[in-house]
């Protein structure tokens, strides 16, 4: 079970992982459309008042495409020769971590709390929340953070399995790659997908 959640790539890669990944992306797309969520960045999840049905799908496909290309180039530079299908499959499978994440905003839960925060008067900085809302906000933040950590852990395992790099080379190439992908995807999804 632990392996299935944190290192599934020992068993799944290539087309099999890609099939699972596309299934995860499709399910999270459905939830994201229902809950007004966008994946505008490779490790991002943001909630809006209104999201079009196409945006969450395009966000994920652009993210996946950029991620595969950037990490493939990094692998080539570092002398590793991963298969593109393995990179695409394992990175797509990693989206498992965000499968249910959009549901955190069910009935506009997070959007409403965020909108309440926006009404905060800087001259009278008193949180406009009841105790219950405050606890709810903390729990939602904790859940989001856990899912992001899980997502990054899966991306790391995917990169490790596909590249077979070790030590510092593995860690620094992953950090650099993720930063590059994040910058590109945030730029593209927030500027060109409306």
């Amino acid at each position: 079970m632990k392996q299935a959640l944190f290192n599934p790539f020992i068993k799944y890669a290539g087309t099999k992982a890609l099939a699972f990944g596309l299934l995860f992306i499709s399910i999270s797309w459905l939830f994201a459309t229902l809950c007004n969520a966008r994946f505008d960045g490779i490790v991002d999840l943001h909630f809006y008042d209104k999201v079009s049905w196409l945006q969450p799908m395009l966000d994920q496909f652009i993210g996946l495409l950029i991620m595969v290309l950037v990490f493939y180039l990094i692998a080539l530079v570092l002398g590793s020769k991963p298969r593109l299908i393995d990179l695409a499959g394992t990175f797509a499978y990693s989206r498992l971590a965000f499968l249910l994440a959009p549901l955190l905003n069910i009935s506009g839960l997070i959007s409403n709390l965020t909108n309440q925060l926006k009404t905060l008067d800087p001259s009278h900085p008193v949180l406009p929340f009841s105790n219950v809302q405050l606890i709810l906000l903390m729990l939602l933040s904790l859940a989001t953070l856990t899912l992001v950590v899980w997502l990054v852990a899966l991306y790391f395992k995917a990169w490790k399995t596909c590249s077979n790099l070790k030590g510092n080379k593995l860690v620094f190439s992953f950090i650099a790659g993720l930063l590059i992908v994040e910058v590109i995807t945030v730029f593209l999804t927030r500027n060109f997908i409306a």
């Binding site: 790539f9 020992i10 068993k11 799944y12 890669a13 290539g14 991963p82 394992t90 399995t161 596909c162």
Partner: peptide, 8 residues
């Protein structure tokens, strides 16, 4: 095992 695991 997956293909890349065996390759590794």
């Amino acid at each position: 095992f997956s293909y890349p695991t065996v390759r590794n």
